[in-house]
Structures are given as structure tokens and as C-alpha cells.
Design a protein around this nucleic acid. Structure first.
Lengths: 233, 233
DNA sequence: TCTAAAAAGTAATAATTGTCAACTTATTAA
DNA sequence: TTAATAAGTTGACAATTATTACTTTTTAGA
């Protein structure tokens, strides 16, 4: 049984991978003509909120957090972008500054595509246009889900849900046990609460046998129970 | 002094008005060829989450709330759409069911444009494509702001902020005092808390001279103080 | 492999928010 | 106009969440 039968993962995942999948080769060539590749260390910033976008980013490997920082320097993670996803493009399209920051959650390889190439390709490629509209609309729905998550669920429920979502994101090709490798601080700012609360909830889940932890690593052993706690009908 | 000098209203407002503004006449003609108009009474539902979209909606007059309903039938308002805004189009573009519901907050006139006309116009109009991409990207940023609002601000701060935003939405053409005419239940589900909490915060603001209330109507007399409470730097 | 430094985990307590009950003020329809 | 109904308001209290202070474990570098 796949998790998709019991949990609507698509409500929480952007799948911007699809943007470049199936793109006509000549459009892709135009888009990637001047791309550059860069290795980001864990914690390294890809772009910062408020800066003017000079291009878009494609995650070749690794994971990147998208987050906002408040007045007292506390982070709030809006989304965890995975290998194959495109980030930073909405700000280019809105002709606005970056509205959030992005930083590598683990060692990641990211390609940079200059704004000019992106916009030029957009003028030529009906396919890219269509895919962007479709993807953005979906991402919009995902964010709307996140908002009601915050306004209507408890810390315990939100933690359970984010763990289920993270488990999907940390899955590797080989089927087997999934290790979620994320600091408690990052997990807390994803759930939207204090680190202590996340730790407490994790302890409870551990004691009930839903998961194991080893240092920062989390292995979920009973997804079904977590899905029930997240209360998704 | 305009409010724009002290408060970034664009961070909280979709401005999807711009989608149809400046559209070439022939594109507009194609889009609106088969539109129908309908008067919605206060509270009447325009579309419901989970339904398959058959078209998009243009608000000719009035205000429409976009909301989600949870398992215990509690509403959460994601956004208040105003006269001139387009709604329901993201679901058509994502080729998905409606991901939220829409209902009139006051007597409203709404035009319906069939999905086929919308998609056909989209294939012909580079302008519409560009505007939609730009608008969706901006709306995405607005939702991201709402998420951090929830995760990082108290009920009191959120209430202050939503009042400032609502004041802009309830402004009429004539300059003068603005009456926010919204039920406490709707205001509470916009702020994301219980009705009682919103009432309490309103009482405090009233006693401090930031606003007056008369029944459900709210008149803000000191926006600056509210902006300071919302803590927007 | 040893050892600081960083991160994870725990407990107690304070602050905020949610819920219930009672009551007052508006609104609506007979 | 008035009775009935709905909506708004207030207070008390319970539940949840944040904060502070601290111990234990893990990690990364010498």
C-alpha cells in the first residue's frame, strides 16, 4: 500500500519538478545556455529576502529551505524544496524582490539560470508558460493548506503532519527505512513553534513507538499513527 | 500622508484587478463572450472546495471571502477578495478541484466566465499569460506572508494587522471615515482565533481610542497605533 | 580518539489562547 | 411595535504554548 492511499501528500508538496520535465529540447537549450553550477555547504544561503533577483535556481541535488526571518532573527521555514525543484522564479515573474530567503539544509548542488535567459525562454515557449501557470497555481494551493494548518491545528498535530511530509522528502530511491536528518531548530521553525515543544512531541511519539531518534536523525516506524494524529480525513 | 508610506499594504493584498486591466480589447472580447452575471446575497456561496471548476469569477461589485472549512465545520478565511478581483482561476489553471470555498460577505455582483473561454483566450493572449504569471506570483508572496503572520504573531498583533488591511479594503471612493462591516465570527476566522478573543482585543483598542464600534461596524480612528501594534518594520 | 562546542533533551513555570456560561444589545419577522 | 432570534460582549477557568534554566548527548576538529 502506498502512502498516497491514506495521505494526500500532493497537498503539501510543490512538485515544481514538473516545470522542466517534458520541456522541448530547444526551449531547454535556450534556458540553460548560460547556467552555472555551485556547491552549497549545509547552512549556506542561496538568496536572501529583499534582494533583487538576478535569476532562478534549479536544485540538482540536496535540499533547500525557504524561510522568512522576523524582527528578533527567528526563522520560519515556509517550505523545504527538494532535488529537482526550481526556486526563486516567482519573484522574477512578479518583478519584485525576493519575498523569502533560501539556504541549503544539506550539502547541495544548485544551478543558476540568469533572469534574462529565463524571461527570453518564457517569451518563446508556450510549454514553459503553461507549466509555470500550472505549477504556481498548485503551489498557491499548498500554501493555502499551510495557512489553515496553522490556524486550526495544534503543535502536536502539526508536528505529526510535517513528519509525514518530511518522510516523503527524505525518501531515497532504494526502498527501505527513511532517515529524516534535520536539526530540532529547523524542525521547530517548520512546525512553527519553539524547539522545546517539538522535542516534547518527539519524545511522546518515541515513547509510543511511532518513531526512533538517534541524535538529530528521526526514523518513522508507524506512519499510520502519525497520519491519524495529523487528523487528515 | 498616504498609508503606503507607513504600511506595506501590497504585502497583504492580491491586486488581481491588474489581470484584466490593459488587456487588448479583442482578448477581452473573446474572454467575456459568454459571461453571465449573478447577484449573490450576503452569505451565498459562489463555489465550494472540492467541486470541479467550470469557470472563473469576476467580482463586479461587493466582497467575497475565500475560506476553508475544517472537520468540525469551523471556517478559516484565507483572503477577502474585493470589487474588481478575479477568483477561482488558479484551480482552473492547476487543472484541479477548487482548493477553497468562496462566499459573498455582502450583496455582490459576480460575473461567471466559462472555463473553455478562459483557456482559449489564454492560448491566444500573450498579455493574459504574462499578467496571470505576474499576479499568481504576487499572490503566492501574499500567502507566504500570511503564514509567517500566523507562526510569529500573537492574536492581538494579528487582529491589529487585519484591521489595517480591512480598512483599506472597505475604503470607498469618497475620502472620509471607513466603516468595516464584518461579523465578529468572520473577523475571528480571518485572524485565526476564537470570536471571544477578537472581541476582547477590539474592546481594548476601543478603550484606548484606536477605534469605535457600533454593533458590528468598526471605524478605525488611529491607524498608526494599530500599525505599531502589528509591528511592521 | 579526545575534547570543546553545539545541539538535543528535560522540567518548572509564565503567558497566551481556547472554551463555557451568562448576559446585553442588535436585528428580523409577525 | 414587539416578541423572537441572532449577534456581540464579558468573565472565569482550562488547556495549550512559550520561556527560562539547566543537564545530557552528539558532533566536529585538534
Amino acid at each position: 500500500m502506498s502512502i498516497k492511499d491514506i495521505f494526500p501528500i500532493e497537498k503539501w508538496d510543490f512538485k515544481s519538478q514538473s516545470i522542466l520535465q517534458g520541456i522541448p529540447p530547444e526551449d531547454l537549450a535556450m534556458l540553460t545556455a548560460n547556467q552555472t553550477e555551485h556547491l552549497y555547504q549545509k547552512g549556506e544561503v542561496v538568496f536572501r529576502e529583499g534582494a533583487y533577483p538576478s535569476g532562478i535556481f534549479f536544485i540538482r541535488s540536496g535540499k533547500v529551505k525557504k524561510y522568512k526571518v522576523n524582527e528578533v532573527a527567528k526563522e520560519h521555514i515556509i517550505y523545504v524544496a527538494n532535488t529537482g525543484e526550481l526556486i526563486g522564479y516567482a519573484s522574477v515573474l512578479a518583478d519584485d524582490r525576493y519575498t523569502d530567503s533560501a539556504a541549503a539544509l544539506e550539502k547541495s548542488v544548485v544551478s543558476f539560470i540568469p533572469k534574462e535567459d529565463f524571461l527570453k525562454t518564457l517569451q518563446h515557449s508556450a510549454y514553459l508558460n503553461r507549466q509555470l501557470l500550472k505549477t504556481l497555481s498548485h503551489e498557491f494551493a499548498v500554501l493555502a493548506n499551510s495557512i489553515s494548518l496553522f490556524s486550526q491545528k495544534s503543535v502536536r498535530e502539526r508536528t505529526a503532519l510535517q513528519l509525514v511530509v518530511l518522510r516523503e522528502k527524505y525518501k531515497t530511491d532504494e526502498i527501505g527505512l527513511v532517515e529524516i536528518n534535520m536539526s530540532r531548530d529547523d524542525l521547530a521553525s517548520l512546525v512553527g513553534t519553539a524547539r522545546e515543544n517539538v522535542v516534547r512531541v518527539l519524545s511522546e511519539f518515541r515513547s509510543k513507538g511511532y518513531l526512533n531518534t538517534k541524535g538529530r536523525k528521526i526514523v518513522i516506524t508507524d506512519v499510520t499513527s502519525l497520519i491519524n494524529i495529523a487528523n487528515y480525513h
